[in-house]
Computed example of a mutant assay.
Amino acid sequence: MRLDGKVVLVTGASRGIGLGIVERFHEEGAIVYAGSTSNPSGVYPDGVTGITLDVADEAQWKTAIKQIVEARGRIDCLVNNAGIAVYDGVADGSTENWRKVIGVNQDGVFFGMREVIPHMQKEKSGSIINISSIWGKAAVAGAHAYHASKGALVMMTKNAAITYVKEGIRVNSVHPGFIDTPLTQAQDPAINEFVIGMTPMGRAGTPREIANGCLYLASDEASFVTGAELVIDGGYLAQ
Rank of each mutant, 00 (worst) to 15 (best):
T52N: 08
T52K: 07
L78G: 02
I68Q: 07
E58C: 00
A71R: 05
D76Y: 04
A64Q: 06
G47L: 09
A59F: 13
A64S: 08
D54E: 11
G47A: 02
A71K: 15
R72D: 12
I68L: 02
D54V: 05
R72W: 06
Q67C: 01
V79C: 11
K66A: 14
W61H: 10
A59D: 13
L53S: 08
D57V: 15
R72L: 00
V79F: 11
N81P: 12
I51N: 02
G50L: 01
E70N: 12
D57K: 12
I75F: 14
D76S: 03
E70I: 01
W61G: 04
Y87M: 11
V86R: 15
G47V: 01
I75K: 12
R74L: 04
V79Y: 03
I68D: 03
Q60V: 09
D54W: 10
D46R: 15
V69Y: 02
L78A: 02
R72F: 14
A64I: 02
G47Y: 03
A71F: 02
R72G: 03
R72C: 03
K62A: 15
W61L: 07
A85T: 12
E70T: 13
A64R: 06
V69T: 15
G47S: 09
I75Q: 05
D54C: 01
G83W: 10
G83H: 07
G73M: 05
I84W: 10
A85Q: 12
V48G: 00
D54Y: 09
I51Y: 04
A82K: 03
Y87D: 08
Q60M: 14
A64F: 07
A64D: 02
V86C: 09
L53A: 10
I51K: 14
D76T: 02
R72I: 01
K66I: 05
A64Y: 04
